[in-house]
Design a protein around this nucleic acid. Structure first.
Ligand SMILES: [Zn+2]
Ligand SMILES: [Zn+2]
Ligand SMILES: [Zn+2]
Ligand SMILES: [Zn+2]
Lengths: 131, 131
DNA sequence: TTAAACCCTAAAGTGTACTAGAGGGTCAAA
DNA sequence: TTTGACCCTCTAGTACACTTTAGGGTTTAA
């Protein structure tokens, strides 16, 4: 399968596929006589794995590690795999908490501003940021 | 006040201060005879404003705009100011929602994994990512 | 006097995940 | 035969907010 076909199948850019190859996320495919990449069928599954993992918040580097486990499942344990998702969950929770704090702080000063059309000389938002 | 003193006072890197200057977030300070930057006292407040605004989720560009309003308060309205924070609040809410969705998806596959020490050949996390 | 601590500029590097551009070769159909 | 669609490599650009490096000059205390 040539790169254009693969790109269409998995709905990714041709450049993205070459980029993933350069980052070691997919193996270098064999080449046709003219130098074109010739992907095996399982490239489709591998790329779908990558897309799913991205969707649930993994970075490309993390996905690379995850793929290393996936292709040698027998040499790894559920524990190892679950560690990945646990760490990711912790990170996501932390980000949500940080954003929630920011939101609360912003909400507070937002609510106290009158929003009127007079000059902002007395604006409570600016005052809050000044202190 | 020289840059090192200011950096210590507001707890920012010297380079960061010069970077903020290059981005127009703080005015170019006067120079001493030897060429060293000599900051006025109000730089401290200005930088604290910037730090607070960053904490509340504004980008440097947005802070620049906000500062433009702040120094010419009389020419702007509360409405304008409140618009800024409203937009920011919307963005933060959207980010939280996105993260919550990712969290839910990840949580789901995470919970279904046994986490045991046997081989990951049957791991439901990997299976979820494969399909 | 000399060493540490401080200051300067300008340019390049960092991380993330691509995206775009230059410049060129290959293939199928009209 | 020529047009258009496809493929190749290599390099650079994108956004953001710094951080680092190189190569200097200045001040202060021992
Ligand atoms: Zn008002
Ligand atoms: Zn107001
Ligand atoms: Zn298991
Ligand atoms: Zn498992």
């Amino acid at each position: 399968m040539k790169i254009g076909q693969l790109a269409k199948t998995v709905d990714l850019d041709i450049q993205t596929l070459r980029y993933y190859e350069s980052q070691g996320l997919i193996n270098e495919p064999q080449r046709l006589e003219n130098g074109y990449r010739d992907y095996p069928q399982n490239s489709v599954e591998r790329l779908r794995f990558i897309k799913k993992a991205k969707l649930v918040g993994f970075t490309l580097k993390e996905i690379k590690d995850l793929l290393a486990i996936q292709v040698t499942k027998d040499e790894h344990t559920c524990q190892e795999v679950k560690n990945f998702t646990q760490i990711k969950l912790d990170e996501i929770n932390q980000k949500i908490n940080e954003l929630s704090e920011i939101k609360a702080a912003l909400q507070k000063i937002h609510t106290s501003c009158c929003g009127g059309e007079e000059t902002a000389a007395h604006c409570s938002i600016l005052q809050a940021l000044e202190n």
